[in-house]
Design a protein around this nucleic acid. Structure first.
Lengths: 190, 190
DNA sequence: CGCGCGATTGAGTAATTTCAAATCTAGTGG
DNA sequence: CCACTAGATTTGAAATTACTCAATCGCGCG
């Protein structure tokens, strides 16, 4: 796990053993069970999490009471309610565990500490944030320009491993279609 | 303009006069006319821009040849093709000037320079990037959970000043509906 | 075995798109 | 200054897409 995380960071910046040891010491390991919350609506968000292994979904309940899935997080992804985390406010979303998972957690103060002490890590997070923006932009574009069928097909080709692990209901919500519609897409595909 | 930009930055961090002078010296002023490109598809993206005054739209032409508007940028907003800018690749989007505009431009090397030299500015950009992520997430949620009518109403209440300045066509594209549908929403609203 | 939940299917309905035509509008050249 | 044109907007009608509600199916678990 320690090595896996190092690889993750070193995809973007490189660190000496000593630097890495120091950085790693600011993270805590946590095991999460299915149906538990990593982030829970209306509660404060102490940490940002890196998923060692497992699966989560971030969802938001809208004004009509409908739960919409904003994002999934699997091995090697970061997740939290960033808005609440950075602003020290209460979460507006839930992050729910879908399959038994292990995460590394980083508190806001530790995050600021290592960013302040290490230009490299500040850079790492900056680049990650930029990548995340680019990914969001792509998702927006996808929602704007593709219909249910196309969105589903793109999802399948982009995240083949998730198809197995997620319920159809979750996938439908992530894609912004009803369960029934998704089901019909499934059968007309082949 | 110089003062306006300072205010923009100081909404997030505070700077001494000296610090600000130094930072400001890394920006260049540019005037843009209607229909000109700030960023053009397939070209390299040298700068990120802060809009002093004016109006732009960022758009992407999808596989079906349909132009989708990803984002608008008005006074006090930043805009560029971030993906291309950070990765020094060619733009995949166009950023088009809608109304005579003035922008401040910052090159990637200058951006890196001031981030490296000033923790405060690195912080500023980091926070901006986070805010941008949060905004994208909200837009995704809005696209997932609201219908055309609701999206349009939210747009009106969020950006009342843009309603005047933009074509209906652009607004429709931004909201992910056809021009005709938007037109009909308009009349049923009263 | 039977319950409960997720997934599928059917039928009818609502929302949105598409295509076509009619208006309206701003900018251009004479 | 006016006529003209290209583009933008609106409107109508039909077609398509996706949703809702209801019923059924399939399957794992107690």
């Amino acid at each position: 796990m320690k090595e896996k995380f190092r690889k993750h960071i070193e995809k973007i910046i490189s660190l000496t053993d000593q630097e890495y040891e120091y950085i790693y010491s600011h993270f805590a390991t946590r095991k999460i069970n299915r149906k538990d919350f990593l982030v829970e609506r209306d509660k404060y968000v102490e940490n940002v999490y890196w998923v060692v292994e497992g699966l989560f979904e971030a969802s938001y309940v809208d004004q009509n009471g409908k739960r919409n899935i904003i994002q999934f997080a699997m091995d090697d992804w970061w997740i939290t309610d960033y808005n609440a985390f950075f602003n020290k406010t209460r979460a507006s979303i839930d992050v729910t565990c879908i399959a038994t998972s292990t995460v590394l957690s980083l508190s806001l103060s530790n995050r600021e500490k290592i960013c302040f002490e290490s230009h490299k890590m500040a850079n790492f997070f900056r680049i990650k944030s930029n990548l995340s923006n680019v990914a969001s932009q792509k998702r927006i574009l996808n929602l704007l320009s593709s219909n249910a069928q196309e969105r589903y097909e793109e999802f399948i080709s982009k995240y083949p491993e998730l198809i197995q692990k997620l319920s159809k209901k979750s996938i439908a919500s992530y894609l912004g279609v009803s369960r029934e519609t998704l089901s019909r897409l499934n059968s007309s595909r082949k």
